[in-house]
């Protein structure tokens, strides 16, 4: 039982990070029909930007700020202007393939200009335990969960409780009508790209101390988050959050109770079951687009 509790906590902590990345998938799909297969690499890169800042002498807190800002410029603004906009007119598939190429490009660039080896990355949460319901739970797991939950809460508040959020929703649901009623649709789409870049940078900050900074570390994350987004519902932010948490827990339980070798297969099998019996995802809605 104690083991199950530990597994659930660890699974939720990992799942919360998957959720951040999966929310980004959903946002980009909703506003610009972009399926970003480089999303995993988007999580990997900010850690290296922060490490680079530290290498030139910046303290950790400043490196975090610089890393997030640079991520928003490179993975938000530049990604949209230089890749998504020119490719979008050719359809969803060419754009998806272009993002695959981008993923390879980012990985190889990090390998070339930084290192093929893993690098340590400092944690924003101190090591140590606290007692929760009589169980020792690591501060790191709690810290990851809290930061991820705060980020998601902030995002949902922005989307549902602010004028800006309502404009973003309108731009996603019906861009033509949104334009007519004066919503700056292009600016709203750009904003979702910037939010996605912020979320992946945050995920990078949380996951890299555990997974280590390595050029290939985005592969697992990208795949898990993609599955999470589909399982939860590709057209719902809340679906992506639920999917992320579910996949995180499922992955850990599968590794413990099924087999380490087949752990990667279990979320995939779950994905197939969801697609067969509820193609819109667990919390998604058929034929609807909203953020």
């Amino acid at each position: 039982m104690s083991n199950l509790f530990d597994l659930l906590v660890a699974g939720l902590a990992t799942g919360a990070i998957y959720a951040l990345v999966a929310v980004g998938f959903t946002l980009l799909w909703q506003t610009s029909q972009t399926i970003n297969f480089a999303q995993g690499e988007f999580v990997m890169l900010p850690a290296f930007l922060m490490l680079a800042a530290m290498h030139v002498g910046a303290p950790f807190w400043l490196a975090i700020i610089l890393g997030i800002l640079l991520s928003m410029i490179l993975l938000g603004l530049a990604f949209k202007l230089l890749l998504v906009d020119p490719m979008m007119r050719h359809g969803v598939l060419p754009l998806a393939i272009a993002t695959m190429a981008l993923a390879i490009g980012i990985k190889e660039a990090v390998k070339q200009f930084f290192s093929a080896e893993a690098s340590p990355f400092p944690s924003i949460v101190p090591t140590g335990d606290v007692s929760v319901l009589g169980h020792a739970v690591s501060l790191q797991s709690i810290g990851v969960l809290v930061v991820a939950i705060l980020a998601v809460f902030g995002l949902t508040t922005l989307l549902n409780r602010t004028s800006l959020g309502h404009q973003m929703q309108a731009a996603a649901q019906n861009p033509t009508v949104a334009r007519i009623i004066g919503v700056p649709v292009e600016r709203m789409i750009l904003l979702t790209f910037l939010i996605n870049a912020f979320l992946v940078a945050l995920a990078s900050l949380l996951i890299t101390p555990i997974y280590l900074a390595k050029f290939s570390s985005g592969e697992v994350l990208g795949q898990a988050a993609f599955i999470a987004a589909i399982v939860g519902g590709f057209n719902q932010v809340r679906g992506a959050i639920a999917g992320g948490l579910l996949i995180g827990v499922l992955d850990n339980l599968a590794a413990a109770y099924v087999s380490t070798q087949y752990r990667a297969a279990v979320p995939m099998i779950f994905l197939i079951v969801v697609i067969l019996f509820r193609p819109q995802g667990l919390l998604g809605r058929a034929e609807e687009r909203t953020v």
Binding site: N3, I210, N252, Q261
Partner: peptide, 19 residues
């Protein structure tokens, strides 16, 4: 306990060790 080369997440494996 067998683990995979390149494995990133060891939470479940360590859970088994604790158990």
């Amino acid at each position: 306990l067998s683990t995979e080369a390149g494995q990133a997440d060891f939470a479940a494996d360590v859970g088994k060790i604790k158990a």
